[in-house]
């Protein structure tokens, strides 16, 4: 059972998401919050697997709530909710540790799939095409290779490059002619060496350091 919390200032959005996710047998809604502060309180008390967090909310907004949660070391995966995919806030949220983002009007099936993927962890990138478009739009001119990347081996750099292209572990394995388990190890290493929570942040780092 995947436990999910929903934070959005619009009741109609919350109720819509609730209706959609309650229809899924393996998903359980543990609570709703109408602003960022309530979301932080809700997550720290119920520790859900996944938090759906609206970017723009009155008072403590999604970004602020997100940084409070990551700062507190909460394990909950955060999916940012947004009306528009090309939203600078979303980009900043991904840099700040969100696992991905959902368009509020995505088909219900896709929302459920996204929640499951986020709960599973680091295997795949959510909405790879949208993510790349977003990162593409907001990263400026590529920076020179960031020194942090020096810590990576050549193989790990290859893997990072492929993550940034939105490939899943299985696809990376095929691309590099190695086993999927090996890929998982590499991915875990990359994330650990760069101090990242998630594949999404790996994409951002790859773009910002001009690796792609």
């Amino acid at each position: 059972m995947i436990s999910v919390a929903i934070a959005d200032d619009q009741p109609l959005v919350r109720s819509g998401l609730r209706m959609i996710l309650e229809g899924e047998a393996d998903i359980e809604i543990v609570g709703e919050a109408a602003d960022g502060a309530a979301a932080v309180a809700l997550v720290t008390s119920t520790l859900p697997d996944v938090l759906l967090l609206d970017v723009q909310m009155p008072g403590v907004d999604g970004l602020e709530a997100l940084s409070q949660l990551t700062g507190a070391g909460v394990e909950t995966r955060v999916l940012m909710l947004t009306t528009f995919d090309l939203d600078e806030y979303v980009y900043r949220a991904m840099r700040a540790g969100a696992s991905g983002f959902l368009l509020k009007d995505m088909p219900g099936e896709d929302i459920a799939v996204a929640v499951r993927q986020a709960a599973r962890g680091t295997d795949a990138l959510l909405a790879p095409a949208l993510t790349r478009r977003l990162v593409d739009r907001y990263t400026g001119a590529p920076q020179p290779m960031s020194p942090a990347l020096d810590a990576l081996t050549a193989r790990e750099l290859d893997v990072l490059r492929l993550i940034a292209r939105g490939l899943s572990n299985a696809e990376i394995a095929r691309e590099l002619f190695i086993g999927e388990t090996t890929v998982k190890t590499h991915v875990a290493r990359v994330l650990m060496k760069l101090g990242l929570r998630d594949r999404v942040q790996a994409v951002v780092v790859a773009y910002e350091s001009g690796l792609t």
Partner: peptide
Amino acid sequence: VHDQLGHSLTVVALQAGAARRM
């Protein structure tokens, strides 16, 4: 447009999606 239409349309799509499934 982003603030006003986006909001209304999002709610419409979301609620319609939920209604379809139920």
